[in-house]
Design a protein around this nucleic acid. Structure first.
Lengths: 242, 242
DNA sequence: CGCCCTCTTTTGTCTATACAATAAAAAATA
DNA sequence: TATTTTTTATTGTATAGACAAAAGAGGGCG
């Protein structure tokens, strides 16, 4: 339970300011009260106000200029940074009220294909684990997944046959990660892919390709193909920091 | 020029901690030094350390528990929040080294279609401005855009014919916004769309639909169709704040 | 053994003060 | 007027201290 009214005075100041900005009452470019004005208004010390304002700078909500004051930040003109929630497939399917199913298509240990830079990067020992599997919702194909795993980073994966364990969930429980990169695009499914997903060839598919690292060590590369018309991603604006 | 070595002691502490986490040296779950240990290590006061750690909590990098200490946060198990950069099309095309071109297909003022909830929401005065246009890279179609604008929120848009002005850029210069929601999906282009983009019907397209508000007032709704195989979005992991 | 109470450590928040850095504004100067 | 110098308001960062709140640790007691 997250209380609507927070505990401290600083939190109070912060949520007041955020509310003024979010409501449009203080539009972008607007100067917000000086520190000493907020001190007086809330009867607190300058450090309290300053800590709040520094945090809002970090969040990208405001900008501050010495001698001039603090200003509501304008959305960045050429790039918007938005927060995109990428759910895990089993959980996402459950949340939508369907029954999740998993089906392994193929698992093997093989050499990286030289034409694929990320596969070479992922196979420091000269080989990698390649998995193809299907995620089902109510027994019907929902997403097709191609994954390669670095066996040096995740030696336990060599013991796993992944006939029951879902690779994504298993990996999350097995090994942490610190960095990930996602690429999102649309493709027409080829004959093989469309057959597995039980749709006509050429159907549009939303593809999420993700690379994951622990420190500098690559962990896994995964490519998930969703049926584009039954799946979409939602992103909310979040002002970008610096 | 952003200096690699920041200015203050707090910034020093912060970047040290972030580096330890990013490198995997302090893995998720690891306890990081107590405040008093950092005080001793950096020979500073507790407030300095505390401000840094509070900020890292806000950024979602660490968690703190009284009496127990501060811990590197695990990536959230069921939802990853990633930062997605959505560039503006003219700038994006220029960055890729192509010549940007713009072409208005249709502009008219019309009533909202009752079946579309967002159009009704966008037309408080009973009508809206509907624009269809094309973005070109080196003279070739790059993206097809369908946009509706709230004429109550943006009265100047009634005077603009948008034969030269790119609606997205013009709106950004004309009116600020405080909130946006994006939906991303893949579709097969229909006959009309594919003809405008000069590709075969059925080609997969990455669709970004964006709704924008100023405070509680809706500003514009836009649907941009990109050729899926020549365009992709990149997102970087960013730990989500609470 | 399980339960309750107290002690202790660590974080959470705040105060009051200090000085440095910066950039706008005002004043002085050419 | 145009340019340079000085002033000053505001933010940036830091210190030292204080008390509160939470939760693990340990002890006493049934």
């Amino acid at each position: 339970m997250k209380p609507g009214q927070p505990q401290g005075l600083g939190q109070q100041i912060r949520s007041d300011i955020e509310r003024h900005i979010a409501s449009g009452e203080w539009p972008p470019g607007q100067r917000i009260p000086f520190e000493h004005e907020l001190m007086a208004q809330y009867a607190c010390s300058r450090m309290t106000v300053n800590k709040v304002l520094s945090l809002l700078v970090e969040k990208g909500l405001i900008e501050r200029r010495r001698r001039a004051g603090s200003f509501v930040r304008k959305p960045h003109p050429n790039i918007e940074s938005v927060a995109l929630d990428i759910p895990h497939i089993p959980i996402d399917i459950a949340v939508r009220g369907h029954v999740y199913g998993y089906q392994l298509i193929r698992r093997r240990v093989r050499k990286p294909r030289k034409s694929m830079a990320h596969e070479l990067e992922l196979a420091p020992g000269g080989s990698l684990i390649a998995i193809q599997c299907l995620h089902l919702a109510d027994g019907k194909p929902f997403a097709l997944e191609d994954r390669v795993i670095n066996p040096v980073a995740v030696p336990d994966a060599l013991e796993q046959d992944f006939t029951q364990e879902v690779p994504g969930s298993w990996l999350l429980q097995t090994i942490p990660w610190t960095r990930a990169e996602h690429r999102i695009k649309a493709v027409n499914l080829d004959r093989t892919e469309s057959a597995l997903l039980k749709v006509p060839p050429g159907t549009a598919s939303l593809v999420i390709a993700r690379r994951t690292w622990l420190g500098k060590q690559p962990i896994t590369f995964v490519r998930q193909m969703f049926l584009g018309d039954s799946y979409d991603l939602v992103a909310h604006f979040r002002p970008s920091a610096s």
